[in-house]
Amino acid sequence: MRAFTYERAGDAKAAVKAAASTPGARFIAGGTNLLDLMKLEIETPAHLIDVSRLNMATIEATLDGGLRIGAATSNSTVAADPQVRARYPVLSQAIVAGGSPQLRNKASVGGNLLQRTRCAYFYDTSKPCNKRAPRTGCSALEGLNRNAAIFGATDHCIATHTSDMAVALTALGANVETLMPSGQSRTLPMLVLHRLPGETPEIETCLETGELITAVVLPPPPPGGQIYRKVRDRASYAGGLASVAVAGRQVALGMVAHKPWRASAVETALASGASPAEAIAVELEGASPLGRNDFKLPLVARLAAAAISEANGRGA
C-alpha cells in the first residue's frame, strides 16, 4: 500500500473543503472496497479523509412520506431497518444479496454506490485497462468477458457496475444528496449519478472533485409489489451475473451495464399492456452481447419476466 496522510473530518463542510484543496484526497467511510484496491495499488490516494464519524448515519422519514438514509449508515443497518423492510423490501433484499455479513456491517451506503467494478482486468495491474490506466486499452474486449455489460458499453470499457443496493435504489427512483466544496448541497437522481463509459470509463459518476454523498432519499414506495432477484455462480457471497429489482411497475437491471440499468423500455411496454415476457424482450432488443456473455440475454429475459410477474402477483 502506498503511503498516505489521514485526517478525521470534524464535519461535512470541513471534509469537502479538505477534499477539494488536498491533491489526491479521497473520502473513506467503511473502506471495504477502497482498502482492498489500495492494497493492490489500484487506488493510490495521497490523503484519506475519514467521514465515518460524521453525523450521517441516521434513517428518518421525510415529509412527503419517503425515507432519508444517511450516507454513512452501514449496509446491514439499512437492510435491517423496520421502515425499509416494511415499505422498501426490495432494498433490504438487494443489500443482503451482496457481499458477506462482515462486509455489509462495515460498508457504508455512500461507499456502496461508489464501489469500483470487479472486472478481472481492472484488478490485474499487469494488463491494459482504460478504467484503471486511461488510454491503455481494454483487455476484456478480447479476453475473459463472460460477465461483461450487454447495454451501453463501448470499445473503451465493457465493465459492469456490481452493486446490488444501487439496482434497488434505481428501481425505487431514489435521489442522492451531496455536499459540494462550495458548501452548496445538491440532489441527483440515481439515474444521473453514474455515467456510461463512453471514451472516459475512468470517470464513473458526475460528482465533482471533493463532492461528498451525504444521503440517499427514497420517494414514497410506488404502488405494487417489490422483489429483488440475483443470479450468480454460487449461492452466496459472489458477485452477480445479472439481477433485477422490481418496485411495482418500476424495473431496474443489475450487472448488465456500467451503471445500474433502469429498464425504461420494460416500463413503457408494461404500461401499454405488454406481458412481462414481452416487455423485457423489448428492452433486450437494445442489448449488444459480445459472444462469451450471450447467455445474459436469455438469463435476463427469464429472470426479469419471473420477477415482474411475482412482484405484481404480490402487489396491488
Binding site: 478525521r8 473502506g31 484519506l48 462482515q102 462495515k106
Partner: peptide
C-alpha cells in the same frame, strides 16, 4: 463482526 483486514486501525 467485521473483517479486520479491511479496516484501518487509526479509524
Amino acid at each position: 463482526r467485521i473483517n479486520s483486514c479491511l479496516s484501518l486501525a487509526v479509524m
